[in-house]
Design a protein around this nucleic acid. Structure first.
Lengths: 288, 288
DNA sequence: ACAATCAATAGACAGTGTCTATAATGGATA
DNA sequence: TATCCATTATAGACACTGTCTATTGATTGT
């Protein structure tokens, strides 16, 4: 895949014609024709249906279009990142998307009391994203799933179970425990970034239960609000439970997660060292 | 910028050496050396500091690294999007990140009652992102800021003012209105995706007030939770206010926003037409 | 002083993007 | 029905580019 070919592709999409796209790209039509053909061969999919009047995106081409735009956008962002001066020092903390707002909020509030001069940026991400960004050095710390990493990498903070949440007025809301069969006719909200999404899916499949999986979002606050509003139920870590929903145990679903504070992968700038030390000890002392 | 050069760049970062990176990339060292030199010239920045023992990322190289990874990731995603079969039809709805979970949740719950067979994907984004994705046809509808678009583009749903929220135990929490000077010594949380971020900044600057801008996050649920926990205050649209925080008016800050339902940019597949019509009329009827 | 290691440079060459010219196709018009 | 027009595809020539082998230059360790 080559960037210049993506530009050709977009030019064709925008003009609906190889000839006009070639003009736009400042090359001749045969050059553009050969380029699109090359791109199609690289990708292994036909992107355009050709007629002598105009060209049309195929289904594959339609699916490719937003991705092509995203790639070019990232290229622009990359050039921008280079052209901007380096930013002033601050603590960049990654937080697992599925970590409770309430818990993180109170942790940060007490940290602010302790270190009133520290500037902090909070960024949400999946486990993998946070890992990548620590590795990249675009994050200093991360609060993420602990899987036994060595002590120079991560400090274990604690664990919590997964529960199934329902609207407070749900027929099953008065129970402390439900089984898969109880949920067979229920609607399900899929939290697309849930760390135990495949385990959850397997839990229901193993029991021959297929709840209606009809609403999906990567945003957990929205998912919990949707449960509270009555859209359906979903599996969440205990800490996401608030007074608007009821948590019940799923019989036979014993998954839990441990959370750790992931440490900087390299030396921090001297000006952030004391804030970083304060943050580290603060989280370790205050997490429970 | 060329993809193959980005792969060379990453190989050097990972190995710390042009020679080993060349081995990894299955080319000779002079090829790789010339490639990195070409990339540096294209970008206008030196990415590596060369020594004869090993090479080191420059500041520019460090800033570029996450972006280079993001570009390659997007390329992988593009190939994946092509290789996966077209998905089964569903309604893809973009929601402005700063729209209240509660409001969206209840809207979706009542929609589910109306159209129980509709599968729905909820995606959050900024105003610009949602606009782009409608244009891309990777979203069907969007709930976003209405700025007077024509009726075939968007349906106005209503408006709401911006307010300043404080912890319930804040000294100013009992007032209905505060001025900029009241907040001069307070901590501020910056909601990095706020649509009136520059207006907010100008409001304070015009009054020679510079609150301590120390915490920043793109995630509004986290921001509100941080306010509730006592980190500081922030400006939010009225609909984000819940019982954990107190809203006060900012004297002289009269901004408000209007929300509209943005419509599909092109014809939807036949199988989603009725669900789409149901969603459109449901939102229009139920928003207030 | 010498050897080892590594990045940079030079020159030759195969591969590639691009051009001009032309062929093929389908739709519109007389 | 024949002709014209618009458009994409194909062919061949050529300038440009990525890559190779060979070599140079710089630094470090023995």
């Amino acid at each position: 895949m080559d960037i210049y070919l993506l530009r050709y592709f977009l030019a064709v999409v925008e003009t609906g014609s190889f000839t006009r796209a070639a003009d736009r790209a400042f090359v001749t039509q045969p050059t553009l024709s050969a380029g699109i053909k090359k791109l199609e061969q690289q990708l292994g999919h036909t992107l355009f249906e050709r007629t002598n009047r105009r060209v049309f995106l195929t289904d594959a081409g339609t699916r490719f279009l937003p991705r092509a735009k995203a790639i070019l956008h990232e290229c622009n962002m990359a050039q921008q990142a280079l052209d901007e001066a380096g930013n002033s020092p601050l603590l960049r903390i990654g937080v697992l998307t599925t970590l409770s707002n309430r818990k993180v909020g109170s942790l940060l509030a007490s940290f602010r009391e302790k270190a009133p001069h520290a500037a902090v940026e909070i960024v949400d991400g999946t486990e993998q994203e946070l890992e990548n960004r620590l590795e990249d050095r675009s994050l200093d710390f991360a609060l993420s799933v602990y899987r036994g990493e060595p002590e120079d990498r991560s400090i274990p903070l604690g664990s919590e179970p997964y529960v199934f949440i329902l609207p407070t007025d749900h027929p099953l809301a008065g129970r402390t425990r439900v089984g898969a069969q109880d949920l067979a006719e229920d609607y399900m909200i899929v939290r697309s970034r849930c760390e135990v999404l495949s385990e959850t899916s397997r839990y229901f499949t193993d029991r021959n239960v297929r709840p209606r999986l009809v609403y999906r979002t990567p945003n957990d606050s929205r998912a919990v609000a949707m449960v509270a509003a009555g859209v359906g139920g979903t599996v969440v870590p205990q800490s996401l439970v608030d007074e608007r929903v009821r948590a019940v145990k799923l019989t036979g679903f014993e998954h839990e997660r441990r959370i750790g504070l992931f440490l900087p992968r390299s030396d921090l700038p001297t000006e952030t060292l004391s804030a970083a030390e304060a943050f580290k000890s603060h989280v370790r002392d205050k997490w429970a």
